[in-house]
Design a protein around this nucleic acid. Structure first.
Ligand SMILES: [Mn+2]
Ligand SMILES: [Mn+2]
Ligand SMILES: [Zn+2]
Ligand SMILES: [Zn+2]
Lengths: 142, 142
DNA sequence: GCTGCAGTTGCAACGACTCGCATTTGCAAC
DNA sequence: GTTGCAAATGCGAGTCGTTGCAACTGCAGC
């Protein structure tokens, strides 16, 4: 986990106090690479930093989501999943039939964002959507 | 609440047993007109039907959502909000600044659904989205 | 370095939601 | 209308996540 200094800078720029708890929690999210639930995060943190309270983890994730540092998304598992906001903005297509999860480039939703701005004056923040439906493979099977 | 018979028919058509609990719960959702949380629903049911257990309410809402009878949406309040699936398919624009909630006609997302089908073969089910952002009024203030 | 204080944390109590299991019930077949 | 059974309910126990509060700490100013 070599992202500690970088994470501290990001926190400071966002106007947050840099506490060891926050740095550890957010580094763990970054290190996870992909989506991670709060409870799995707590389990993994317990190994390296057993003193961090669960409520601190939840609060840190919530404020990081507010600040746009992480995405919080309901991928249908019942638990929110978190993901560090990196350079590759994307969404997900989730098949209700086989459960397959695919990534979708941001560009598909850009058109809608433009339309919303032009017609409704609403500046949409299309962060990280989970779009449910039926994938190509499962349609042909039916 | 004159929707009891109609609700019973909908339940039967969906292959569910028609129990008084389910009918009362779903009628209450229909009667609410707009989005309602599970806990508020439980409070309101306690008045007219004090014998219905909370777990039955949660189970009924979950299965109704699976069957497509109600929408379950995170509108940002922390609790899921439920809404009877009527004739007017719509989504919502929610302002992060002033909290205003506007309805958005389905047609705005239809274009994206078509694009997804043509380019990825994915049959998206764009039920009832909550799109966060900044409304027109709050932009001019900034 | 100290000091002061707003912001953060841990803890414990609480509310929201889920789950297993024994009992009851809708409903289809006779 | 009786019977049989799968499905639904109620209850209790348990898990997940939130919140109020007292103690603590990062950090800006001196
Ligand atoms: Mn993702
Ligand atoms: Mn709605
Ligand atoms: Zn599939
Ligand atoms: Zn606004």
């Amino acid at each position: 986990m070599a992202c500690e200094n970088e994470t501290a800078v990001v926190l400071r720029e966002a106007g947050q106090k840099v506490t060891p708890q926050r740095v550890h929690i957010l580094c763990e999210v970054r290190h996870a690479g992909v989506h991670i639930t709060a409870s799995r995060l707590i389990d993994e943190l317990r190994v390296s930093h057993p003193f961090i309270d669960a409520s601190t983890v939840y609060r840190t994730l919530a404020s990081a989501a507010d600040l746009g540092l992480v995405y919080e998304t309901d991928m249908g598992s019942g638990e929110s999943e978190f993901e560090w906001v990196g350079k590759d903005r994307h969404h997900h297509l989730i098949c209700r039939s086989c459960g397959d999860v695919e990534s979708l480039d941001n560009s598909y939703l850009d058109g809608m964002a433009t339309l919303l701005y032009e017609e409704a004056g609403f500046q949409a923040d299309l962060g990280h959507f989970a779009i449910f439906g039926v994938c190509k493979g499962c349609q042909t099977k039916a």
